[in-house]
């Protein structure tokens, strides 16, 4: 009987105290606002925020021009990042083709003039990022992305412009938010009849580049 009364008394007490506890919790934020410092704040204006969706840079590498030995290629690249996954890019590159094995061995007249050996291409494409991070040491961490590109364009070689498909893969290492190093491999595919019969040629390029975001 006595424990029953005591139980009832405790329940009653708890009922009285618990609203007081929650009231105390609620009143806490109001005391916080009293010590909020009175500061002049700059409001956000979209056009004032530096957006870094464009990427521009140069690259240098080696291109193996099918039948015409390998040579240094230099070029420029402009990309626009649509969202975190996709980007579009325009690429320009140029190289000078060497001699074919036949020209070297036979010692005969060359297939192409010096001007026709100029290899220039442009390419418009779309790329897909696989974003990631690189841990060089425990505290030295860089953002990075592995990406795949698919593009189409034109190659000027052997006196003609040729429709060219480009497949590529690359790796972007962001040393800062706005400066990145690139490692790229690309295959430029076009039809050529320079060595007799028409065939599809694969011109594989690999190189390193540096880009700025702006």
């Amino acid at each position: 009987m006595e424990t029953w009364v005591r139980g009832l008394f405790l329940i009653g007490m708890f009922g009285l105290i618990s609203p007081a506890i929650s009231a105390q919790e609620q009143s806490e934020p109001t005391t916080k606002s009293v010590i909020e410092p009175d500061l002049e704040r700059r409001d956000i204006n979209e056009s004032e925020i530096d957006s870094e969706d464009f990427e521009v840079g140069l690259f240098v590498g080696v291109i193996s021009i099918e039948d015409f030995s390998s040579d240094t290629v230099v070029g420029a690249r402009l990309a626009y990042h649509i969202n975190e996954d996709f980007f579009v890019e325009a690429t320009y590159g140029q190289a000078e083709a060497g001699l074919t094995s036949f020209e070297i061995l036979s010692g005969g007249s060359p297939f192409l003039t010096e001007e026709e050996r100029e290899y220039r291409y442009y390419n418009l494409g779309i790329g897909y990022n696989l974003n990631g991070e690189v841990f060089l040491t425990r505290d030295l961490v860089f953002n990075s992305a592995t990406y795949f590109t698919l593009g189409a364009g034109s190659t000027e070689f052997g006196g003609d412009d040729r429709f060219t498909l480009s497949l590529g893969a690359g790796y972007r290492l962001l040393l800062t938010d706005y400066f990145a190093l690139h490692f790229d491999v690309r295959d430029h595919i076009f039809n050529s009849e320079i060595i007799g019969e028409e065939k599809s040629t694969h011109n594989i390029e690999y190189g390193i580049g540096a880009t700025f975001f702006f």
Partner: peptide, 16 residues
């Protein structure tokens, strides 16, 4: 909630 943060820059749909 209630904290003030500075907005430094943006990249696509992300803000630093």
């Amino acid at each position: 909630k209630g904290e003030w943060v500075e907005v430094l820059k943006r990249k696509t749909t992300w803000f630093k």
